[in-house]
Simulated scan of single mutants.
Amino acid sequence: MTDSERQRPPERDVKITGIETMGVKGNPRDNGEHYTWGIVKVKTDAGDYGIGETFRGEESMDVAMRMESLVVGQNP
């Protein structure tokens, strides 16, 4: 496959416009504490978005929000 065949057509170019995170409280552990699942939403200027999950709860959602300034304006 050539480089030109790998490139997206310009009409499919999108830019990341933001990141949102949400914590979902899971079932309690043996010690009574609840595990937090992190949900991350990456939004684009075309109205499309991607959803992902994290396994480190609060900490990884914080990292996702700190990465926002690095990825806004990028083409996913």
Rank of each mutant, 00 (worst) to 15 (best):
R6F: 11
I39M: 08
T21Y: 02
G32P: 02
E68G: 01
T17I: 04
G57N: 03
M61S: 04
V24S: 02
I16E: 02
G52F: 10
H34A: 14
I51E: 10
G23H: 03
T44D: 12
T54I: 14
E11S: 12
T36D: 13
M22G: 06
P9I: 12
D45F: 12
R12F: 10
D45A: 13
W37Y: 14
I39R: 11
R56G: 09
N31L: 07
R6W: 13
T44I: 08
D45Q: 02
G38S: 09
T17S: 00
E58H: 08
T54S: 09
R56A: 13
E58L: 07
G57H: 00
V72C: 03
W37P: 07
S4Y: 15
G52R: 11
T44R: 14
N75Y: 03
E59D: 09
T54D: 06
G57A: 01
D48E: 12
T21D: 01
M61F: 03
G38R: 06
K15E: 05
P76A: 14
V42H: 01
R12C: 07
P76Q: 05
G32D: 00
E20A: 02
V42S: 08
D13W: 09
K41A: 07
N31I: 11
N31K: 04
E20H: 05
E53L: 15
K15P: 04
G18E: 06
K43L: 11
V63Q: 04
I16Y: 01
G50M: 11
P28E: 12
A46N: 12
A46T: 15
V42D: 08
E59G: 11
P76D: 07
G47C: 08
M61T: 07
G50A: 12
V72I: 08
I16T: 00
S60M: 09
G73H: 09
K41H: 06
D62K: 07
P10A: 12
G26K: 01
F55V: 06
V40N: 02
R12I: 06
Q7I: 14
N75G: 06
D45K: 09
R8I: 14
P10W: 00
G57M: 02
V72W: 02
K41V: 12
P9H: 14
E59Y: 07
S4E: 14
T54Y: 09
D62Q: 09
T44H: 00
I39D: 00
M61K: 05
A64W: 00
V42F: 00
T2S: 15
R56H: 11
R56D: 10
H34N: 15
V72N: 01
E33H: 12
